[in-house]
Design a protein around this nucleic acid. Structure first.
Lengths: 201, 201, 201, 201
DNA sequence: ATTTAACCGAGACGGTACGTCCCGTCTTTAC
DNA sequence: GTAAAGACGGGACGTACCGTCTCGGTTAAAT
């Protein structure tokens, strides 16, 4: 079938100006401010236009998430080292606000819009996935992998979500050491082995 | 100065009928439904009356929290056992909805109302406090206590808040065993020692 | 049952200011201008308030009609004279705009709102009724009464509605003389008998 | 200057399909439905195309009126007979809807669009003209001709426009007899002379 | 067969009004 | 003083249509 007529979707300029304003709004006033009304006021893009392309605030948030994917970090092959790297990366992202704010906004939206539930799911999965990837090389049974990831990541998320405080980076590193030692190494492990990393907290 | 006239505060009947409706609303439609409007519709208590006694939705939520305090569990003196008991208690409360819903509502409200931020803080502290209490008896350094509590509780909260799934009870018990062994016992610990507890998950 | 609380219906001030503005609008811009939006702009009464009390433009028009009822003219007992008086009265009312404008508005609204159809019916009946009342005394058979009223009134309405010109007063008086002579008198009638009336047209 | 390229104006197929839909819309939903939007929905002719050829709803209505002119009836030379024939013709046209609907639509549009005022004028003139033509042969003074036409036609229009009822055909015939007798014949007139016509009402 | 002007469909876009909903405050009345 | 009933201004919501516009692809006459 031959396509005729003007191409569909927002003109590039429109999409850019709206999403840029959306990011600003989100960071400065939180997810509840991502309304068509506020976006219109900030961008002077017509309210109707915004509804056309992003019918719900969830759609705006989804578009925001899509434009800033998390770049993959290269694996060294050493699981312990890789997991520590991921901890640092996640703490950095949580510290630089957008990720923590995205999470807060997703939780708040999920209370209203079922579509946001799924989005929240995918977003959290995206945050956790790198840890599973890093732990792939360690010879741990699946249960221990899951436990380790949960014990490492959850406190960071809780810090960002519930306690409004910077992610507890050094604690996370300690938990990594506790969980990710290969079982064979646990008795002989040198507890100071991970002290070379920069404790940025 | 002598007080004259009708005593202040809502008549008991009013307060009860409103808060009962508020709980129903909260559980069935989430924190965003806790509006004067909805409460009025459900209770046929006048909107003006509701505004008088609970000026903001946060006040309603705070009143709800106050009426259902968490009863303290008696301590046995055995930290390991007490922490396991607390894990079970928290999982039960998260499972029976109110607590998880309170948390979601508090997070959502905190995005809007600063007063809710403080309330959220206090509520989370109330959830965590029993674990610190239980670990009081264990001869662990403060850092390890904090790490342990975080590693135990955070995954449960994340399950309830972010992943909409029942709290991972057995995993939490495993994590307790991993963290709460008294340090002196870690080498000789029998990893099967906690298998007697009922795995209710 | 005891009535409690503030009495229902618009406060007097509100109703007056809105209806006054509605009349101005109607006369200056026609029935299509009787929208909540325009009324709000002119009165700075809130749009919501207007919707509360007059949910449709037809309701506004109905309220307008209710506040300005046509006062009854006294009957002399002489049908011919009374009908001539009614012709003058109707021409005056059509000339002074409100009635003609009401009619136009009612026709236009009736195209959209079924409620306006009934209102239009009642309004037209109200315009015609005085003629039937005046002709009551004449000893004419019912058919001739109807014919006479139609022949007298219709051209006036058509002038106002379709041709945007002042009602043809003198023609209407001629038609009265043609239709309302008592049949016994038609042969002997002095065609100049009605020349004493002031020809205001 | 030599014209080159595709000729201007709508392709025949486009014009026909749009006007056919416009007529349907007009009859079923009234003049207010004659919008570019509705025409587009019914015909799947692009909205832009419709704007190109009929910039306002009034233009659509004008085009509709142009495509269905009233065919002239032949005159017999007998004014009385001819006028009766015209009465029947007008009643038929009013009864078959389009004319009555056109009138209603024209009145409604005239409230908004000044261009429709002129159109309405022309349309009404077109309805009345045949009566003047038929009365041309009668030896009546101009004033009486005007009175007669008004008394005959106006009630029919009022029936269609204001009272939503079928045109009162037999009354119209009676009024013809009353007005159109040549003055010389009025004394000797046989009032039953017109009873031979079929009373279709 | 090419030009060339116009048609035509698809859709973006700003704008405006719609009718609804809830907010928070106020006034009126009854108890 | 408490409470109910309800008016009121305010503001956002989501929808609908308006009129204009920019794209592309198509069509039909004149060269």
């Amino acid at each position: 079938m031959v396509r005729v007529g003007r191409p569909s979707g927002p003109a590039e300029a429109t999409a850019e100006v709206v999403l840029r304003a959306a990011l600003t709004l989100l960071l400065e006033e939180g997810g509840a401010a991502l309304t068509p009304q506020r976006l219109h006021q900030l961008t002077s893009v017509s309210r109707a236009t915004i509804y056309r392309h992003w019918p719900t605030p969830t759609d705006v948030l989804a578009a925001l998430i899509d434009v800033a994917p998390d770049p993959e970090r290269p694996l060294t092959g050493d699981p312990v080292r890789d997991v520590h790297a991921e901890v640092d990366a996640l703490c950095d992202r949580l510290h630089e606000k957008p990720v923590a704010t995205f999470l807060q906004a997703l939780v708040a939206m999920a209370a209203t819009d079922p579509a946001a539930v799924e989005l929240r799911q995918r977003y959290v999965d995206g945050l956790i996935a790198p840890f599973y990837r890093a732990l792939n090389g360690a010879d741990l049974p699946p249960t221990e992998v899951k436990d380790a990831v949960a014990a490492i990541v959850s406190p960071l998320l809780v810090d960002a979500l519930l306690l409004d405080r910077p992610a507890a980076r050094v604690r996370a590193h300690r938990v990594v050491d506790l969980h990710v030692r290969p079982s064979s190494a646990r008795q002989e492990a040198d507890p100071a082995s991970s002290h070379g990393r920069p404790g940025r907290e």
